[in-house]
Design a protein around this nucleic acid. Structure first.
Length: 686
DNA sequence: GTTTACGCATCCCCG
DNA sequence: ATGCGTAAAC
């Protein structure tokens, strides 16, 4: 059973009924037979790994407590990943089948990395361990049980841009896009709906607390959202939130399936628990019906995804949902020097709310973190680039250096400077290449083959045709039917008939192929003229992107998994500057948003734009909760550094519409005792 | 019905 | 600075 969550679940289920979803009524009563958990086995197992020698007492307790609910509050750099890796190894060494372990992480890369390390430890393969993000796990389960849910296994996953397209369509259908009618934009609509779902709030309550100016529009908003849900439902479209909602609903309305899943995954571990939301917490509870072997690992001081509906109080609530939870706290930091930790601790101590632990380290001393005041952004870039070159001279490999920032665009100028000085770097986070218009176009062709009812993609590829606009698209999409609707395209007459015939032909040819690489080759040939006609600027770059995409596609044997990965785990790295002539093995500099740097560490870390207004960002200074999240973000950024930490602070900010503003250092470092920071002023050589 | 040029608001973090 | 909706031109 779903335990203590039953009442709330019912509320949500009936809330869904209101917007046209199947309800939770008539749930059959299932008799339960509890199987004993494994192990115990006969006699104590013998372990190859000397756990007690390699782990501290708290880590050891985490690793050896195999049964029952466990909450691990793990501070930054406290060996959290290491502990999880050893726990997987311990389970396997204890005779648990790898396929009975479920490891839910924030990115798929994190899961893969942990399993790789666990495999190295136990000497056998941990590849059978189920792992990934909540979204990818939900996708797998929904595909497997699609039939019972009345879904096609080939359902299409909408990314945020797709969701916005659908929302814009529904919005204009209701005549809300006229200028005299003030109504939220598509991005805002998607954000509002998503928040009601991820925070489990009624629309009215969300509006009252977060969007009071929209209270008068409540009924119209509700109608738009109903339209949005209906549009998706009739076309086998599933957005990110649907993946979680449908998995949760599956667990509630199909107890037999929940039981089956729970018996299959006897050992569940959830990483980064502070960044899960109410819905994800409910999924965890729904999976733990046949047992309570759930480990939640997280750090309330590192919660940085509230904007996505995450709630760090999930951590505090965990013991209430799982009676008998053992709580273990990891407070020893193995990563950072004392000087860096002192600063980070001082920043987090300024928070309104007390967090659960204080970090300490045995790495006493260390160089004081520096606060570098630069005149403007150009000077900041010059300082960072020059300092990186000096560090390299001093023997710090480029791969051990990272530059972190609040927002992707904060690094634009630095990227130019690094390129000018031939410093190789990779940028993570921010704009992703699958979101570029030309890549989305190409993906749309593959998507209509996989799901012929995917109207979002149909609209996209039809609009590419010359002489076809919104009205014609509407008419054509209305006539599409059956399992291979592209066959009918050639039969249309009038404007754009030739183009449509060409499109019909290429889709027919594609449908006959199985291999994603071959399908894509056809698309690229077909798409080339449209690309040149529509996206005139940056042609060479766009060509390179598509080539890049082709090499990715060739790695897949099946289109469905290619499309799912592009939506759920898209490639984020875009290599800029000069590629490392990497005979040296010294790696390349990492440029990353702080969000994408979660869980990583470097010898030297630069934090750009530690300027009030940029960090904390101006858009997040209105309410206390948001400021607190910015503070935790700063804490996360600082605790990525092992030995050297530089905060750079340009004193001039260029703000849209306001010209140049004089600014102060971030309030988070201004409030800190002076002794913790080394102030540095920049002086020009000439 | 389709395309394009122009004024307006909006700029982040992400699966 | 860029992308959106809207109005006038093709």
């Amino acid at each position: 059973m779903i335990g203590c969550s039953t009442r709330r679940t019912r509320y949500w289920a009936s809330h869904r009924v209101a917007i046209g979803a199947p309800g939770a009524y008539g749930t059959p009563v299932v008799k339960r037979y509890t199987l004993r958990a494994e192990p115990p086995r006969d006699g104590p197992p013998s372990f190859r790994i000397p756990y007690a020698e390699e782990l501290n007492p708290q880590q050891l307790e985490t690793v050896t407590t195999l049964e029952g609910p466990l909450l691990v509050v793990a501070g930054a750099g406290s060996g959290k990943t290491r502990t999880l890796v050893y726990r997987v190894a311990r389970l396997v060494e204890s005779g648990v089948l790898p396929s009975a372990i479920l490891l839910l992480t924030f990115t798929r890369r994190a899961a893969q990395e942990m399993l790789r390390r666990a495999t190295g430890l136990v000497g056998g393969s941990c590849a059978q361990v189920a792992g990934g993000t909540f979204h990818s796990f939900a996708h797998q389960v929904l595909r497997r049980y699609a039939k019972q849910l009345g879904m096609s296994p080939g359902f299409t996953i909408l990314d945020r841009g797709d969701s916005e397209d659908v929302m814009a369509f529904v919005r204009s259908e209701r005549g809300l896009d006229r200028k005299d009618r003030r109504f939220p934009r598509k991005q805002a609509l998607v954000a509002i709906l998503s928040k009601t779902i991820n925070r489990a709030m009624a629309l009215e309550d969300l509006l009252a607390t977060s969007y009071p100016q929209l209270l008068d529009e409540r009924e119209e908003l509700e109608r738009v959202f109903i339209g949005y849900v209906a549009y998706k439902e009739s076309r086998q479209l599933v957005d990110y939130d649907d993946l979680l909602v449908r998995l949760r609903d599956l667990l509630v309305t199909h107890p037999a399936i929940a039981e089956q899943l729970s018996r299959r995954y006897r050992y569940i571990m959830v990483d980064e628990y502070q960044d899960t939301n109410a819905l994800q917490a409910e999924i965890v509870r729904g999976l733990a019906t046949a047992h309570t072997n759930v480990v939640a690992v997280g750090d309330d001081a590192q919660s940085i995804y509230a904007f996505r509906g995450a709630n760090f109080r999930n951590i505090m609530d965990f013991p209430a949902h799982f009676p008998g939870t053992r709580v273990i706290t990891l407070e020893e930091n193995y990563r950072s020097s004392q000087a860096i930790l002192d600063l980070a601790n001082a920043v987090i101590e300024g928070a309104r709310e007390r967090y659960t632990k204080n970090l300490f380290t045995r790495r006493h001393g260390g160089e004081r973190p520096a606060l570098v005041r630069a005149l403007d952004e150009l000077e900041q870039s010059r300082f960072v680039a020059q300092r990186i070159l000096e560090l390299r001279e001093e023997g710090v490999p480029l791969g051990e250096i990272a530059v972190l920032f609040r927002s992707s665009f904060h690094a634009f100028d630095l990227e130019i400077e690094l390129g000018r000085r031939d410093i190789p770097f990779v940028k993570r986070g921010g704009f992703r290449f699958v979101e570029a218009a030309h890549v989305k176009d190409v993906l749309a062709y593959l998507r209509v083959i996989a799901n012929p009812r995917d109207a979002v993609s149909w609209r996209r590829i039809l609009l590419l045709l010359e002489g076809v606009g919104h009205k014609s698209v509407q008419a054509i999409v209305g006539t599409l039917a059956g399992p291979a609707p592209w066959r009918a395209l050639g039969e249309r007459t009038g404007r754009g008939a030739t183009e449509l015939r060409r499109l019909g032909a290429v889709l027919t040819e594609m449908a006959a192929l199985e291999n994603p690489g071959e399908q894509l080759a056809l698309v690229l040939t077909h798409y080339a003229p449209a690309l040149r006609r529509i996206h005139r600027e940056d042609l060479p770059k766009r060509d390179r992107d598509l080539e890049h995409f082709a090499t990715i596609a060739e790695r897949y044997r099946e289109v469905g998994s290619l499309l799912a990965d592009m939506a759920l785990d898209p490639p984020t790295d875009s290599v800029g500057g000069v590629l490392a002539a990497d005979g040296s093995g010294e790696g390349i500099v990492t440029l990353s948003t702080i969000h994408s740097a979660k869980g990583l560490e470097w010898h030297t870390v630069f934090i750009l734009w530690a300027t009030d207004g940029r960090f904390p960002s101006m858009y997040h200074m209105s309410d206390d909760g948001e400021i607190e999240e910015e503070r935790r973000l700063m804490y996360v950024a600082m605790t990525r550094a092992k030995d050297l930490l530089y905060l750079t602070c340009p004193m001039e900010m260029h703000e849209r519409g306001m010209g140049i503003l004089l600014a102060r250092p971030s309030r988070f470092v201004e409030d800190v005792p002076e002794a913790l920071l080394e102030p540095i002023a920049l002086v020009d050589a000439d």
